[in-house]
Write a protein that binds this DNA or RNA. Structure first.
Lengths: 251, 251
DNA sequence: ACTTATCATTTTATCGATAAAAGCTTGACC
DNA sequence: GGTCAAGCTTTTATCGATAAAATGATAAGT
């Protein structure tokens, strides 16, 4: 695995996690395994909030505010922000702090473009080199996606969101390059941020099950050209719908 | 620009940069502009050293050692390491610190593969959409590359290394996607690390001017297929030479 | 001799405090 | 009224210190 951890860790900050206060030993029974670092937890939490739009794009990040909110000192917050900036979710400027990365229709178009180009390369490689196990994984991922209900209350952490990501990952998983896969994942995240922001802005485009099925079918039939066409159209469609939505919202 | 700063800042840590010690005010005359943060400087220095192989792959990073070496506290070193981990130059594991990312023939093959696929996509887009200004920039970058002497004493920071990077960037610059460009850059860095390690291990493959010229010619003639073929062959050749070298060195 | 438990050492993650910057406010001056 | 400088406030970058965790060494038990 190449990129920094991008999986989503839903654990919240443990309330009783004190430090430097020798009041009394905390033997939290529920703490089965070694607890994650504060940095990791804050990173995961902020990542969720940026992806889902809870932290508005382009807003300045007040470090002290976050420290108070999580009840921690500067270091872990800064470190979490640094990790976020490696995923392009926040921007850092020396001596001027952090802000949430802005969103724009221009960037959305750019991301979609890159997605089409890179996913095409990966998908063709996958179809060319993927074995039977890869094919089965695609079918399985599609089945799970179909079966997973959409939970629109907290879309950022819903099971469907996860299943959706895994379906798309499975398509490319046979391409044989970890770097390429990591980049596709990265692009997926970038696009996902726009999708989730669109959702919270009231967007509600119908389910894409039909599209996913068609893509899967073309893939397991090894029809590379058709699969690529369908996949790119899938991306472009999302882009178009978001464009309408965000343009109306005055983005 | 999407990725975190990847340009190389050769400035060394200013010796007189003291903090918290009110011995006497330092009015360093040479300090024209606001000096960079310690973090940025350390980041740039370590980045150089990892890329050039001065810090051996897979070696554990001793934070305290770095603190003493740079004469700074933990925070800036940790932050620099975090930034490095976003470029995959170091790996972090919770509670187990940082280590320099390992290298392997497997990864080299993976990187080369991804480079071929992604550069192909970007190059085709560049050739298809690039305008006259892009074309001119390619010619210019090639001219500068030819004219720049190779300085093998400190290859990691040499002018040639920079010109080489810029030539390759110029080829893709017309592709119209900042994200795609950033990723190609990222891959270039990854490959560059292997090249520089190979150099310091005694590798000495002849200059690639002829290859670069052929690529440039195909590009400005808008012969996409040929340009792609030459470019990928250029990557593969480097890989093959490194493979021989590293296999012999017992990598 | 070979594990395994116990203790000492090193390293990491985190804290709270502080100097230097940057940003903001106010008031003199044109 | 608009510009600009001096002073105040907020924020950032950095420090040095400390608890928890991991690592390494030592000793007991098989």
């Amino acid at each position: 695995m190449i990129s920094t951890n991008i999986f989503i860790d839903n654990k919240r900050l443990a309330g009783g996690m004190v430090f430097g206060k020798t009041e009394h030993e905390e033997h939290s029974v529920s703490d089965t395994q070694t607890s994650a670092t504060l940095t990791s937890t804050i990173f995961a939490t902020l990542r969720e909030e940026i992806l889902s739009g809870a932290l508005p794009p382009d807003s300045k990040i007040n470090i002290r505010g976050l420290c108070e909110r999580f009840d921690v000192a500067f270091s872990p917050v800064r470190e979490a922000l640094n990790r976020l900036s490696s995923q392009n979710l926040v921007r850092q400027t020396d001596r001027r702090g952090f802000k949430v990365s802005p969103v724009s229709l221009t960037e959305l178009a750019d991301i979609t473009r890159a997605r089409c180009l890179v996913n095409e390369a990966a998908l063709r490689a996958s179809i060319a080199h993927g074995g039977a196990d890869w094919e089965e994984a695609v079918v399985l991922a599609f089945h799970r996606l179909l079966r997973t209900p959409r939970d629109d209350r907290s879309p950022g952490e819903s099971q469907w969101t996860l299943a959706h990501r895994q379906f798309h990952q499975s398509l490319l998983a046979g391409c044989g390059s970890d770097w390429l896969l990591a980049y596709c994942d990265h692009l997926f995240d970038a696009a996902e941020r726009y999708r989730l922001i669109g959702l919270s802005a009231g967007g509600n485009w119908g389910d894409a099950d039909a599209e996913h099925r068609a893509i899967m079918q073309a893939v397991i039939d090894r029809k590379a050209d058709e699969a690529v066409r369908l996949l790119c159209e899938h991306f472009e469609k999302t882009k178009r719908q978001l464009r309408l939505l965000l343009a109306r919202a005055g983005g």
